[in-house]
Simulated scan of single mutants.
Amino acid sequence: MNGMVNGTTNRMRRLREHPVLAEMVREVSLEPRQMILPLFTVPGTGVRTPVSSLHGVDHISPDRLHEAVDAALEAGIRSFLLFGLPSRKDARGTSAWAEDQPVQQGLRRLKERYGREIHLTTDVCMCEYTDHGHCGLLKEDGAVDNDPTVLELGRIALSHARAGADMVAPSAMMDGQVAALRRALDNGGFSSLPVMSYSSKFSSAFYGPFRDAAGSAPSFGDRRSYQMASTNWKEALRESLLDEEEGADILMVKPSLLYLDILSRLRESTLLPLACYLVSGEYMMLRHAAAAGSLDGPRGLLEAHLALRRAGADILITYAAVEVARMVTGR
Score class of each variant (00 low, 15 high):
122 T>N: 05
291 A>E: 15
6 N>M: 09
121 T>K: 02
283 Y>M: 05
304 A>I: 13
48 R>M: 14
99 E>W: 05
320 A>I: 03
244 E>M: 06
212 D>K: 08
51 V>K: 05
246 E>D: 12
195 V>L: 09
25 V>P: 07
34 Q>M: 15
194 P>Q: 06
140 E>D: 14
57 V>Q: 04
280 S>D: 06
25 V>C: 08
34 Q>K: 02
77 I>F: 00
204 S>I: 12
200 S>H: 04
324 V>Y: 06
250 I>V: 15
190 F>G: 07
226 Y>A: 13
314 D>I: 05
179 A>N: 06
132 H>F: 10
147 D>C: 05
52 S>C: 07
152 E>D: 06
239 E>N: 11
195 V>Q: 02
190 F>M: 12
182 R>S: 02
24 M>I: 12
179 A>K: 14
55 H>K: 08
141 D>V: 11
279 V>L: 01
61 S>M: 04
265 R>D: 07
190 F>A: 09
320 A>D: 15
123 D>H: 00
100 D>Q: 11
266 L>W: 00
126 M>R: 07
242 L>F: 06
277 Y>I: 09
175 D>C: 06
248 A>T: 07
109 R>I: 10
313 A>E: 01
289 A>G: 09
49 T>C: 03
47 V>Q: 04
325 A>V: 05
45 T>F: 04
55 H>E: 13
96 A>S: 13
302 L>N: 11
135 C>L: 07
5 V>S: 10
69 V>T: 00
297 G>H: 07
161 A>R: 05
57 V>L: 03
89 K>Y: 08
285 M>R: 01
128 E>C: 10
204 S>D: 03
67 E>S: 00
290 A>C: 02
155 R>Q: 13
317 I>S: 05
327 M>V: 06
142 G>N: 08
107 L>E: 02
130 T>E: 14
315 I>V: 15
174 M>L: 12
310 R>C: 03
29 S>A: 14
15 L>W: 14
32 P>G: 03
170 P>Y: 10
25 V>H: 08
252 M>R: 02
181 L>D: 07
43 P>L: 03
257 L>Q: 10
172 A>T: 12
293 G>D: 11
297 G>V: 03
47 V>M: 07
97 W>P: 01
99 E>G: 08
288 H>L: 09
14 R>C: 04
303 E>V: 13
51 V>Q: 02
237 L>R: 06
212 D>G: 02
270 T>Y: 02
314 D>H: 14
256 S>A: 15
58 D>S: 15
163 A>M: 10
81 L>Q: 07
28 V>Q: 09
151 L>T: 08
81 L>G: 07
331 R>P: 05
181 L>M: 15
114 Y>W: 00
175 D>N: 12
10 N>Q: 12
292 A>E: 14
60 I>T: 15
235 E>D: 12
212 D>V: 15
175 D>W: 04
22 A>S: 14
12 M>S: 13
